[in-house]
Simulated scan of single mutants.
Amino acid sequence: MRNLTTIGFDADDTLWHNERFFKLTQARFAELLADHADPDHLAERLLAAERRNIGQYGFGIKGFVLSMIETSIEVTEGRVPAEVISQLLAAGREMLAHPIDLLPHAAEAVAAMAESHRVVLVTKGDLLDQERKLAQSGLGNLFDAVEIVSDKTPDRYRAIFERHGDGAGRAMMVGNSMKSDVVPMIEAGGWGVHVPHDLAWDLEHAETPSQAPRFRLLGDLRGLAELVEEIG
């Protein structure tokens, strides 16, 4: 009997680029508000707004834009010009329309796993945007199931891999976020594989579970097939 029967993949910054578009938009945000706040202070205020608003807006571009608008109102004490709001909304629409750019080895890794295991996409974010990105990626037909969730927790992983596999104990989650993809999957009883991306959202940081027997680190997705074969 196999130790692993189901492989879960994160999407954003694991299979395709995502965070760099947030960074570019945040740089534009700093330019627009340069007369009211220095970039570091503005970044702190924006991060605080995002943390505060996750429970209401969830993860994704729409919540990010709303948090930028809220922050612009705060730092200008309600005097933010309508043109700035308009440009922030336009930036959000550009992000929502940006074409998908797959990361190196992503397509090959998913295809290789699909030949021998059940593969499940588990991603956070706005439903419509995540569906758009998956459709444009060309990878959609490789997945046996797609789960777009509001958050990633041990209980959520247990439910997902019970529904689409043989339970979390015989599943692996592969992703760039230690906080969302690795730690909660290990706590659920599964394997957590960290594939770092050079950009990471501040709210996705967590301590590395280096002593956990089911933690693995890969430099990129090229080594995934060998790792899965090793685990068995």
Rank of each mutant, 00 (worst) to 15 (best):
A97Q: 13
Y157W: 10
Q130N: 03
N141W: 09
S116M: 11
M68R: 06
I100K: 07
T76P: 01
S137T: 11
G63D: 06
T71A: 11
I148P: 07
V65L: 11
A109N: 09
G138S: 02
K62G: 15
G78K: 04
P104L: 08
A91R: 01
S67H: 00
G167Q: 00
V75M: 08
L89A: 08
K133G: 01
S86H: 15
L66C: 09
L134H: 09
H98C: 08
A111N: 00
V75G: 05
G165C: 06
G138R: 08
A90P: 09
Q136C: 10
V122N: 01
D144R: 04
T153I: 07
I73P: 03
E131A: 14
R93S: 14
A90K: 14
H98F: 04
A82K: 03
R79L: 10
M95E: 03
G58Y: 08
G167H: 07
I69K: 05
T76H: 00
A112Y: 00
A114I: 04
V110G: 04
F59M: 02
R158L: 01
D129C: 14
R158H: 15
E108W: 10
E108Q: 09
V119W: 08
F59Y: 13
H98D: 02
L89T: 08
A107C: 07
V120N: 04
L127N: 11
S72N: 08
D151H: 11
M95D: 07
E70N: 14
G165M: 02
L89Q: 12
H117N: 07
